[in-house]
Write a protein that binds this DNA or RNA. Structure first.
Lengths: 333, 333
DNA sequence: CTGTTAGCGCGTTCAC
DNA sequence: GTGAACGCGCTAACAG
């Protein structure tokens, strides 16, 4: 691959002149400029970002660490992160933490070596990542959705407790009283918060949350399927259920249909996340939609502000999620 | 951020000694080694991959260019690509081409500047990318699924024509004769090949493909929904339909359910891609499963072989897709 | 308007 | 067993 030096020689000018025509960083005679540009084209010269980075001490690279990029929710988030970052002149190194703390540690190390300008940390479920990050200081970080305790970094989130509250209220307003909640593992902060919103809405409405009203299963469609299986087998099955993620809700819908239970006629279901598949579930899923695009946007903007040296106090940017009404919920009877 | 030089001074040794303890590249007395390691830890020194890259002329970075990373099919693919790459000591810069030829051009340029060691090109739908790539030479490329005409690069694919043939045969063997095909836009090679397999199976079975048996819609759930809408409104509706992607098929399932048409009792449906959502569609979708993980693996392995300097003739690695039987297909009547 | 030069942080050859 | 010194490709002072 051609270097600036070679271009300079071939064009009969100095290296710095070449540099300056490339970067428009000082006046160059039209004559010389044209000649240099010609040689560049001819030699297929492409400037080296790595040399540039070494010199300038910045890489225009942002690390994105997510639990699992193939999960539709994260995939959609990543898409918007990439989009915004690109617009603002940055690109993304994608890292999946899924695969254990050791992979995450390795990635964090790698990202530091790569001298990323900033890091977007998308809420991991597991708690294993905490200590790994605490010691880090040197790179701006923005967290999405979940704040790691002890990590000083900006945070962008869409109130999960509120979202869950919204979902549950919706069911209550439809007249449902026997409402169950299907949630992810207890140790996931994400599910915990959502369950919290559910509880608040129930209590506020004076509804009793009897034993077994809250199920904890894996945060997957299979988990949701299983949960609905057990829910539907109960003598007194709930007339509505709030599921803390669309992935699980879709598994639940599948189970309901398999058991011959019609949604929403016999049972209302509301999900959370508004992933693409929710719109075309059978029936289309009523769900809580976090403003994914806006979250991604805010996160990147905030991160870049930090990169540019902003030393304001840490920010918590809280956005609101909204209830998207589709066809999986209906008035009781 | 601390540099090697600082570490050296602080440890009272030379830079090269520090370098050697870090890379285990020559014998260092235990005494010195321990001291250096101590300082490294104390100063939180992290070697700079960018300086290293400049010196070694390699970045251990692989660019991944896909049409749209939030599409579940690509998202799953990317997940496996990342996984394999990480295992082999590489990491990923994620690039979405979606957004027009100009974004793609910009990304390609960026990747060259970044001096990526290799590029994974995941089948774009649109044809706009061709000329952009041809002129490129300097970096190993492996293409996934689709070969850009004129681009000399290895290719990993899972016969799409064969997959579609398999799907259609399945329907035929179930006794269906009036079979429709819902496909993506005509100009997408991906849909074209799949339609080809459909046609071959039909012709081989002596079945007539009457006008309007093949619908072309957008490659999305909304597209599938629309297609099924028109299909179901026909006086003579098909008893089975092969849909060239799960995303579309799921949209179709949604439309069928909305129209009160039961799948598979009244209509069988086969999809393509085996995305995660297919297992929990209502009903669970019978589909063609490309070996995504294996494809990703082969692609990365082949790419790295090229990076390491393999000069063998170009390879076409063709893998087979398989039919996954679930509940959206049933014998006619 | 243009050229010379000193690093950026690291690996590596050569000398001790 | 250790150190000095050069260069990877580029930018930015500093000269002219």
């Amino acid at each position: 691959m051609a270097t600036m030096k070679q271009v300079a020689e071939r064009a009969g000018v100095s290296i710095s002149t070449v540099s300056h025509v490339i970067n428009n960083t000082r006046v160059v005679s039209d004559d010389v400029r044209r000649r240099v540009l010609g040689i560049i084209d001819e030699m297929r010269y492409v400037p080296s970002a790595v040399a540039r980075s070494l010199k300038n001490d910045k890489t225009n690279t942002i690390g994105v660490l997510v639990p699992n990029s193939s999960n539709p929710y994260f995939a959609e988030m990543i898409r918007w992160i990439e989009d915004t970052a690109f617009e603002l002149g940055y690109h993304i190194i994608l890292c999946n933490a899924h695969g254990g703390a050791q992979k995450q540690t390795a990635y964090l190390r790698l990202l530091m070596e790569k001298r990323i300008d900033g890091l977007v940390l998308v809420a991991s479920g597991a708690d294993d990542d905490q200590e790994l990050l605490l010691r880090n200081e040197s790179v701006p970080i923005v967290q999405l959705e979940r704040a790691l305790p002890g990590l000083d970094a900006d945070l962008v989130l869409a109130g999960q407790e509120e979202g869950a509250y919204l979902a549950t209220r919706h069911l209550i307003e439809l007249g449902h009283r026997a409402i169950a909640c299907v949630s992810g593992p207890v140790d996931l902060p994400r599910s915990r918060e959502r369950v919290g919103g559910f509880m608040r809405a129930m209590q506020e409405a004076g509804l009793e949350v009897n034993d077994g009203a809250v199920l904890h299963v894996e945060f997957t469609s299979a988990g949701g399927h299983a949960a609905f299986g057990s829910l539907l087998a109960r003598p007194q099955r709930p007339s509505a259920v709030f599921v803390t993620s669309d992935l699980m809700a879709i598994g639940g819908l599948c189970a309901a249909s398999g058991a011959g239970v019609r949604v929403p006629e016999q049972m209302s279901v509301v999900g959370y996340d508004d992933i693409g598949a929710a719109s075309f579930a059978t029936p289309p899923l009523t769900t809580i939609a976090p403003p994914k695009r806006e979250m991604a946007r805010q996160a990147i903007i905030q991160l870049i502000a930090r990169i540019r040296g902003g030393h304001e106090p840490l920010r918590n940017i809280a956005l609101a999620s909204s209830l998207v009404l589709r066809s999986s919920t209906a008035p009781l009877h």
